[in-house]
Design a protein around this nucleic acid. Structure first.
Lengths: 248, 248
DNA sequence: AAGTGGTCTAGACCACAGG
DNA sequence: CTGTGGTCTAGACCACTTT
């Protein structure tokens, strides 16, 4: 068994009903009892099962819809939202072809190795510096043009099944691979954005001029119970980057 | 009168009650009938005044709280939120002193001129290229160290009162000045983030090495009725920049 | 004690999806 | 037609703030 015990029960008396109910529903998702893309029980059923009024169920679901864990469709039901990291990616870079349509970048694994984690990476996993890890170097391209260079670190034990697969058969997305071969599912991610002048090595791989500005995205991918699964640093030319925020 | 007619009534029959109520409440804020920092009528009073149930009022207020236009305090009341653009700024740059405490940057107006808008700026105001404008160049510093260089454009007519004030008396924040002398209130802003290699001129002002990476924030500040008030481009060293996002 | 928002209920009716 | 979520109501009681 790879995954440890899901989490302590945390019924937490004296919290509002809708709050406890929300925790209960979250747990169903976290333990994969309810899987992404599938409908959860109807509001009436949940109200009966948890012995609360339907209004309380709605309030619990409301908050989960608000932060993107559920989706509602009138007349159809309420569904566990499938996290779409593709779209997160497009939030940062404009990967558009000449006709203005978004395209999925092609992935090329440049290197796969077993290595010792540097301190910054180990910290994300709550491990000691030097912990054994699997490391990928990956280039993502659109129309043969390199757009993002990625440095990916995974804890060895949980991800060692990946060492048996030929990197040429990895496909363009890693998360489905993690799910299929390592039994872990990425549920959310935390990203930090910075920018820097490109290093000589990165410039060569990204086909940029020396010293050109690159955007750096550091991502820690988390499981539903918020364990760190993957540490990733992505670099792309600043010229391709744009990001919008609304401030109130 | 500087501001044009606020907006058409838009009662829009057949919309949900709470939706129409939300529009009505928004209008009270937009027309400054309810001012930032002040409490709005109690839920019971609003329910009576609009002839709806208190639950419907709560739902309308819920959504306005969710997107940051109102704030609720149990036992005290519901208040119009005062937009805090200071904090938006800190979201992007870490302006911390040695003790780790956030500090308000000091502002220095480098230049004030009347100029013709370039196309990119005019577009934000929905004006023709070459429209008359007031332009500021401003440097913001912390501990004598330049951190952000700003290029600010304002439509001439509405902001010409600013030309009469000595720039030395501008203070560190512009928005209060706009409110005080031009009768306009910034209610929200849209920002776009990019990065670039610093130009020779900017490098000199920001005291950076030639070609160093800088983060560029382009901001359009909007009034409550979403008219563009100000166009601003801010540049700061990428090394001081960091931004975090949570993805689900 | 009086007044505010916060939680919770039980039910009615509407709008939409799908057999 | 049945079942789903979406809207709306009227009221009870609780928790917090202020007088």
């Amino acid at each position: 068994m790879i995954t440890p015990a899901p989490k302590p029960a945390r019924t937490d008396e004296r919290l509002p009903l809708y709050h406890r109910l929300r925790d209960a529903l979250s747990a169903e998702i976290a333990t994969h009892a309810w899987r992404p893309g599938e409908p959860i029980p109807t509001e009436a059923a949940l109200a009966k099962a948890h012995a609360v009024s339907i209004g309380t169920v709605r309030k619990a679901i409301d908050s989960m819809v608000a932060d993107g864990r559920l989706e509602r469709f009138q007349g159809k039901g309420t569904f566990v939202r499938r996290p779409d990291f593709q779209s997160s990616f497009f939030r940062f870079f404009r990967f558009l072809d000449t006709s203005g349509v978004a395209r999925v970048p092609v992935s090329r694994i440049l290197k796969r190795e077993v290595a010792a984690m540097p301190a910054a990476v180990a910290a994300a996993f709550n491990l000691a510096e030097g912990a054994q890890a699997i490391r990928f170097s990956r280039l993502r391209l659109i129309a043969e043009r390199p757009l993002v260079l990625e440095d990916i670190w995974l804890p060895y034990q949980r991800f060692k099944p990946l060492l048996k697969i030929d990197t040429g058969e990895f496909g363009d997305l890693l998360y489905p691979l993690y799910e299929q071969h390592c039994g872990v599912m990425v549920a959310s991610a935390q990203e930090t954005l910075t920018a820097e002048a490109v290093s000589a090595r990165h410039a060569r791989l990204l086909e940029l001029e020396a010293g050109a500005p690159v955007v750096v995205i550091e991502r820690v991918a988390l499981s539903a119970d918020r364990q760190a699964l993957e540490w990733r640093q992505s670099r792309g030319p600043a010229s391709e980057f744009h990001y919008q925020v609304e401030i109130r």
